[in-house]
Computed example of a mutant assay.
Amino acid sequence: MISKVGQVMVYVHDQDAVLEFWTEKLGFTVMADEQQDGMRWIEIAPHKDAETSIVLHDKDFIAKLDTGLNLDTPSLLFYTDNFEPLHHELIEQGVTVGEIVEMPTGRTFNFADPEDNYFAVREMA
């Protein structure tokens, strides 16, 4: 049985620009930046002890491998107990940020990376 989500793969056209977004705008930490046989992958996480990380892959390189993968952005939902300050901070940093929306599961907002991939944040009570 699956015990946890280990990594989420995000396929992007410009790894460096997206890496800068996650580290500079959201404060993520680079766990690894590896290259082998022409393939580069960058593992990032909210902090060094996080159980789940995001791996940024070069979309064009992966497409050439013809693995049959769906290279569209996965839907990621992040949790925070610092909801309104995070929303305000992202806006101040020039990130594309959606309005706060009341959902049956709690307050949520979306934000976009430099390639217009959208992600969601939910308030943890």
Rank of each mutant, 00 (worst) to 15 (best):
M1W: 00
Q7N: 04
I2A: 05
V8K: 02
Q7R: 08
N82L: 00
A63W: 09
Y118P: 10
V12T: 01
L56K: 10
Q93E: 05
H47R: 12
Q15I: 07
K48A: 15
H57F: 11
T23Q: 07
R40A: 03
R122F: 03
R107F: 12
K59L: 08
L71T: 12
I62A: 02
E84F: 00
T67M: 15
L77S: 06
G6F: 01
A17F: 11
F111Y: 03
V30L: 01
F109M: 07
P85G: 05
D49T: 15
G6Q: 03
M103P: 04
Q35K: 13
E99L: 09
L77H: 14
T105I: 14
T29W: 03
T52Y: 15
E43Y: 06
T105P: 12
F21A: 06
A32T: 14
T29S: 13
Y79W: 13
F83H: 00
P104S: 04
Q7F: 10
Y118E: 13
M39I: 12
R122M: 14
E123G: 04
G68M: 08
D113H: 00
A32F: 11
T23C: 14
F21D: 08
D33I: 09
A32R: 00
D60E: 15
Q93L: 04
E89P: 02
T52K: 05
S3N: 04
F21S: 05
K25L: 03
D33F: 07
L56T: 08
G106I: 14
S75Q: 11
D60F: 08
T67I: 13
A45R: 11
P74E: 12
V30Y: 02
D60C: 07
I42S: 10
N110S: 12
V10P: 04
V55I: 14
L90R: 00
E99S: 09
V101I: 14
V18L: 03
V12S: 07
V101P: 07
L76R: 06
R122L: 11
I2G: 04
M124L: 06
V55A: 11
D16R: 11
M39A: 13
L71Q: 02
L56I: 13
T52N: 10
R122S: 11
M103E: 10
Y11G: 06
I62L: 02
D113A: 11
M9S: 12
T23H: 07
E92H: 03
A32I: 05
F83A: 01
